[in-house]
């Protein structure tokens, strides 16, 4: 009896299924990053600016994990957005999800690509190449060579794994091959540089700081500490200051975290490899709008809009920062 009632209640509601029709309102485009950070804040700004220019709505949704990213995307579909930009945390396994979304609304990938999928466009850099660029910075910072430890949020995301791999491959002088993988914890030795360890912090800044401290205790002759997620270099710098080892050990950073820029300005961080997250967001919304209006002419032939990575060092950090501030201000 009870079950009949429950079932009736459930099934009864389905009679109304499909009744809700979308009301008339401006188009909404959404961007879903894989995690929360300053980097994605800048990206959000780019998207929001583009939306203002176009007179459309923009929604920026931050998931708690890769698994949650799927939930958030499904939620957006439930709400009925007209286009989604996604930075897939696990592109190999999210192909199905991306295809499912792409079959319903226009979809572009940013920051990390899912080349196997039916995404229309990818906007971003090649993380392997960017990692390689960070390798160049290390070579400049410590031309004599030495011991290197890598700090990173996780390596379960393809882009972070490739970024790390590009760095390692550059330092030990290998051929470029973005599918290579060195297990963290195993020492990778080249002629001049040896990568002693890769410490993961699960995108947890206090943990990142503790990792830096652990590395300082364990390895007495470090030459360079490389932080590959945006907050890493700042945390390393904090720890070096407390240990009075600033200058003794070089820091190479990735992305444009405020602490990183401050560190470069005062000379305690050698340099950083920056992407252009503002452009990711900006270009993504522009592209989604064109696609949703049926304009497919803007799709490049190879489906990739590359926004190159740059190296920022002390000489032009102030100029870079001013530019960033103006973008974020309005």
């Amino acid at each position: 009896m009870k079950i009949v009632i429950i079932t009736a209640v459930f099934l009864g509601t389905f009679l109304f299924t499909g009744c809700g029709e979308k009301k008339d309102q401006p188009e909404t485009y959404a961007l879903v990053p894989p995690s929360v950070s300053n980097f994605w804040e800048i990206c959000r700004k780019g998207g929001a600016d583009a939306a203002v220019e176009l007179g459309v709505e923009f929604e920026f949704v931050t998931p708690e994990s890769i698994t949650d990213q799927k939930v958030k995307v499904e939620d957006l579909l439930s709400k009925g957005v007209q286009g989604i930009a996604i930075a897939p945390g696990d592109p190999a396994n999210q192909t199905g999800l991306i295809n499912d979304v792409a079959s319903r609304v226009p979809l572009v990938t940013v920051d990390t690509d899912a080349p196997e999928s039916q995404r229309k466009v990818f906007i971003g850099i090649d993380n392997y190449e960017a990692g390689w660029l960070a390798g160049d910075l290390v070579r400049e910072a410590a031309p004599e060579g030495g011991e290197v430890v890598i700090f990173i949020g996780n390596i379960s995301q393809l882009n972070s794994r490739q970024r790390r791999q590009g760095l390692i491959d550059n330092l030990v002088g290998r051929e470029k091959d973005s599918s290579r993988y060195d297990v963290p914890g195993e020492v990778v030795k080249g002629d001049r540089y040896s990568i002693l360890d890769t410490l993961l912090d699960g995108v947890d800044a206090p943990k990142a700081k503790a990792n830096a401290a652990d590395a300082l205790t364990k390895h007495q002759n470090l030459s360079v500490m490389v932080g590959l997620f945006d907050y890493n270099a700042g945390q390393i710098l904090e720890e070096l200051k407390q240990a009075n080892k600033v200058g003794e050990i070089q820091i190479v950073s990735f992305d444009e975290h405020a602490n990183t820029l401050a560190g470069i300005k005062e000379g305690s961080i050698y340099g950083t490899v920056v992407q252009n997250p503002y452009q990711y967001g900006y270009q993504a919304v522009k592209m989604l709008h064109r696609l949703s209006e049926g304009d497919h002419s803007a799709i490049p032939e190879n489906g990739v809009i590359e926004i190159p990575a740059r190296i920022i060092k002390k000489d032009h950090v102030e100029e870079f920062q001013r530019d960033l501030e103006t973008k974020l201000a309005n």
């Binding site: 299924t17 809700g20 979308k22 499904e74």
Partner: peptide
Amino acid sequence: TSIIGDNFLSAYNQEQ
């Protein structure tokens, strides 16, 4: 929820 959410009763949302 069906009152305040536009797409609540959509087939896609109900399946989810």
